[in-house]
């Protein structure tokens, strides 16, 4: 027993020395030495292989006529047939348009929200006040969209909702927020901000905390007011963080969170709220058009990946870190 232990330690100590020839035997000995570590890795590795890579292989049914009986292997190849069907269908362009539009709204309104909030919170000197506000702002992030959606519908109800009751005090006729195709996107974006802007401040506040306080001191000496300090020190200090989050957000341009849309959606606003994720669910799982739905998903994934690569490159050219 003790000699075995001695050997193990020797093996470990000898590892960094580059002069030791890496024979197959020594490699096997390393693997044997670390056998428990490999066992530790096994469940996670199996998960990634089966649920990430095998399912990636499953994407091939976008180029096949998938039939349950034939399975993924056995189904017949049809090339780009499903993509042709898609590009010729009005529904697809409609859904794609909605997805992009909601994401453009997101970039314009929801993306800057946590930055603005973080800048404001950063100016607060009273710690207790800052912490209290943060505690309130983070809360919706922990709640599921079913619950948030239920609250929104109740709040905005034309008959019993408090918002319309309030508007009524000013003589405004009840507004049908959830069923109006003009108001629905507004509700969607405001609810995004409600759910995630507070939580999003954490990462910006951490970046702000890392800024050298000496910079502010120097700026104060030079007579710069708070606003000028924010503009010349705080904002440049978090530019890298903004760039990284922007790249990540661009990768989601083709994607609108399923749970968020699905829980706010209703038949009256289908024309503005039907997005790729709800479309895939409908034609794929509800209508069992497996191959067509997979083609939509694949198209979405590939465009998303290309977008990330392009934006990452652009951000790097502008002198920021980017993702890799």
């Amino acid at each position: 027993m003790s000699s075995m232990r001695g050997e193990r330690m020797l093996g470990r100590a000898a590892l960094p020395a580059a002069s030791v020839p890496k024979t197959r035997r020594s490699r096997l000995r390393d693997v044997y030495r670390d056998r428990y570590l490999y066992v530790f890795l096994l469940p996670a590795l199996a998960y990634f292989i089966v649920f990430k890579y095998v399912t990636l292989f499953g994407e091939t049914i976008a180029f096949k006529n998938y039939r349950l009986l034939d399975g993924i292997w056995g189904s017949e190849w049809v090339g780009l047939k499903h993509f042709r069907t898609l590009f010729n269908s009005e529904d697809f362009w409609h859904v794609l348009g909605n997805t992009l539009l909601l994401n453009v709204y997101h970039l314009a309104f929801a993306f800057p929200a946590p930055i603005v909030l973080a800048l404001l919170l950063n100016e607060v000197r009273a710690e207790w006040f800052k912490r209290a506000v943060q505690n309130l702002l983070y809360l919706p992030f922990f709640i599921s969209w079913v619950v948030l959606g239920g609250m929104i519908v109740s709040l905005l109800s034309p008959s019993t909702g408090v918002v319309n009751a309030l508007l009524g005090l000013f003589g405004v006729e009840p507004i049908y927020f959830m069923t109006s195709s003009v108001w629905w996107p507004v509700v969607f974006i405001v609810s995004t901000i409600w759910q995630s802007a507070g939580w999003g401040t954490i990462i910006y506040m951490a970046a702000m905390a890392a800024i050298d306080p000496g910079l502010y001191e120097a700026a104060k000496m030079d007579g710069a007011g708070r606003l000028r300090q924010v503009w010349h020190i705080t904002l440049p200090g978090i530019r890298g963080t903004i760039a990284v989050l922007l790249v990540l957000q661009m990768g989601k341009m083709m994607d609108v969170g399923f749970e968020h849309v699905y829980n706010l959606q209703n038949a009256a606003v289908f024309s503005v709220s039907d997005v790729i994720s709800t479309y895939v669910y409908r034609i794929g799982l509800q209508n069992a058009q497996y191959s067509l739905a997979t083609a939509v998903g694949l198209f979405q994934g590939v465009i998303g990946l290309i977008l990330v690569l392009i934006v990452n490159k652009t951000v790097k050219k502008l002198g920021e870190g980017g993702l890799w």
Binding site: F51, K52, T55, I72, G284, T294
Partner: peptide, 11 residues
């Protein structure tokens, strides 16, 4: 890349 809904469902 994300996991496609349909391949996941079929799996």
């Amino acid at each position: 890349f994300g996991t496609g809904l349909i391949p996941l469902f079929l799996l």
